[in-house]
Design a protein around this nucleic acid. Sequence first.
DNA 1: TATTGTTATACTCTATAACTATA
DNA 2: TATAGTTATAGAGTATAACAATA
Lengths: 165, 165
Amino acid sequence: MPPFTPTQRPPSAAVPPTETAPAVDATFLEGLIGYNARRAALAVISVFLERMAPYGLRVVDFSVLTLIAHNPGVTSRQLSSALAILPPNLVGLVRQLEERGLIEKRPHPHDRRAQGLYLTAAGERLQGEAQSVVASLETEAITHLTEEERRTLIGLLRKVYQPAG
Amino acid sequence: MPPFTPTQRPPSAAVPPTETAPAVDATFLEGLIGYNARRAALAVISVFLERMAPYGLRVVDFSVLTLIAHNPGVTSRQLSSALAILPPNLVGLVRQLEERGLIEKRPHPHDRRAQGLYLTAAGERLQGEAQSVVASLETEAITHLTEEERRTLIGLLRKVYQPAG
DNA sequence: TATTGTTATACTCTATAACTATA
DNA sequence: TATAGTTATAGAGTATAACAATA
């Protein structure tokens, strides 16, 4: 399961809207699912970054906080496989959230190698607010779809990456 | 318009299938369009990279070759805005394709600053083969969707990133 | 012997600043 | 003054190897 995160910069200009040059024919690419899926993901994530800026959260940060919120005591190794982030790359991310006082590590009950991750009170507050904003974004600003279209879209996307499921 | 390209490595293990740790509850993330769009794009691109390996093409390379094929004489600046690749990052990419003998630069008819990009004979051969493979991938292996579902999916994705279009 | 978490490190991708030559 | 193409460079993101502690 991949991280919900391509380019994670604060909302910036990124390729300025140079509409000067005449548009090119991109018909073939526009007929590909991967191309459209990526563009849609980038569009959604762009709005996501704007709205999460006040909370100082990138997409990975939100994903990690949300998984911890819904899975108290989850280990770094579990986050790694759940978000397709390699363990070494999770170290700094977790440390930063810890230094911000949003999460804390506690000894794992059965395995002294592992550490359970938990939200602090501040972390729960922040994650809760962020999740509300994201939930409303999903229907409001980002997606110009009816609720039925939204469900259809998610179902079809799942079918693409989970042929069996 | 973004490049059709997240992680562009040759097909590698990427986060080994460590199914050891029990799965975590990712329900909330799984209900988000951006999350699912990204996963679908990654799944499609993963197969894409496998099939394009024989041609030595990454997704960006294919995108550039295809745009040049369908827009002979297109400029680097046009590719930049069409694929959301910043001009400096396009220089090396174009140079490599040129060194491989797949494309060539010719002086622009009206603007002596610009250069028109064209496929060579070898480039046309390669791009043609690659495009065929990609086209068949779209219906066969990757997408376990009916043709109607495929069209619905693309339509809904467009609606997400092109609210007006 | 295998796994958790970690350090160190390298490679790719993406971004900005600044230059040149033309417009 | 603005644009096309380029160089140099910095910063994210992602990858591998190897280690200590524990299983």
